[in-house]
């Protein structure tokens, strides 16, 4: 019986503790500097101010946000396009023996390699293509992460589409293209959306390649912009918190959309 009260109480306490840094961030984003550069424990502001948000607009935050949006949506679109076709081929079309298994193992290996090990040759690839220091270049190199992830996640969703539906359409004389557009894609819409959300989050948060392949500050994405603020000054906490909050809002909203698929998505589509 004791557990009936104790467990929920402990669960609430832990949840509050886990949330504390996020609460601190939101609070600090509207605190005047004098309140947070202080040796006193204090989460919420006494005299709230919108100053940090206003200053971020002067810093060009909207431009950085646009860069992040362009790169994330561009990379997600490319990953979903190439990933869907590949996943469909792997599940439905007759491939030579063992080809699909070999392909999957390869996808897995890539997914698990540290991004930094590919960085040096990728730098040369981008330079050769003239895509160094461009957003298009980032869209391309993000496929290193995004594509294996998308393929792996979409495989499960393609498998969930009943073959019978497609066979029925085939009997009615539908071409492969027609079956894709009128049968497979509509049935897979929830899966495609879930995959898109996770790829979006992945790209929105990406840091290593954005750091290495973009040099011009006006082309920075939000994470690289945050990194410059972090290392520039020790106590720009108001601005940092404001930008952190702005960068997190769209993601928290997206996660709400796909709550049910959380485990599958976060274990890298590998579960």
């Amino acid at each position: 019986m004791r557990g009936k009260v104790l467990r929920p109480a402990l669960a609430y306490l832990v949840t509050a503790l886990v949330l504390l840094p996020i609460v601190w961030m939101v609070g600090t984003s509207v605190k005047p500097p004098i309140e947070y550069v202080s040796p006193v424990v204090d989460l919420l502001p006494n005299a709230p101010t919108g100053e940090h948000y206003r200053q971020l607009i002067d810093d060009g935050i909207l431009g950085k946000m646009l860069n992040s949006l362009i790169v994330s949506f561009g990379a997600t679109f490319l990953a979903l396009f190439a990933g869907f076709l590949a996943a469909y081929a792997l599940v439905r079309l007759k491939l030579p023996k063992n080809a699909d298994m070999a392909f999957l193992l390869f996808v897995l290996l890539i997914k698990l390699s540290p991004p930094i090990v590919l960085a040096i040759p990728l730098y040369q690839v981008l330079r050769t293509l003239g895509l160094l220091d461009t957003l298009a270049g980032l869209v391309l190199v993000y496929q290193v992460y995004a594509l294996p992830f998308a393929i792996w996640m979409l495989l499960g969703f393609v498998r969930d589409v009943p073959v019978a539906y497609e066979e029925a359409a085939l009997m009615d004389g539908a071409s492969l293209f027609q079956r894709m557009v009128h049968v497979v894609v509509p049935l897979m819409t929830p899966g495609l959306i879930a995959t898109a959300v996770f790829v979006l989050i992945l790209c929105w948060n990406e840091f290593v390649y954005a750091l290495l392949f973009i040099q011009t500050p006006s082309k920075f994405t939000l994470p690289t912009f945050i990194a410059t603020l972090i290392t520039e000054d020790e106590t720009f906490w108001g601005r940092l918190s404001a930008i952190g909050f702005i960068a997190s809002l769209p993601i928290l909203a997206l996660v709400g959309v796909v709550q049910k698929g959380l485990t599958r998505g976060f274990s890298g589509g590998l579960k």
Binding site: Y12, T15, L19, P21, I22, W204, P223, S241, G244, L252
Partner: peptide, 23 residues
């Protein structure tokens, strides 16, 4: 409680780092 516990995982590592550097 469950979705709230998951929140830190979706934040950008740079946002996480910014918070903890201050902490």
């Amino acid at each position: 409680v469950i979705p709230t516990l998951v929140a830190p995982f979706v934040l950008s590592t740079m946002v996480v780092t910014a918070i903890w550097r201050a902490w």
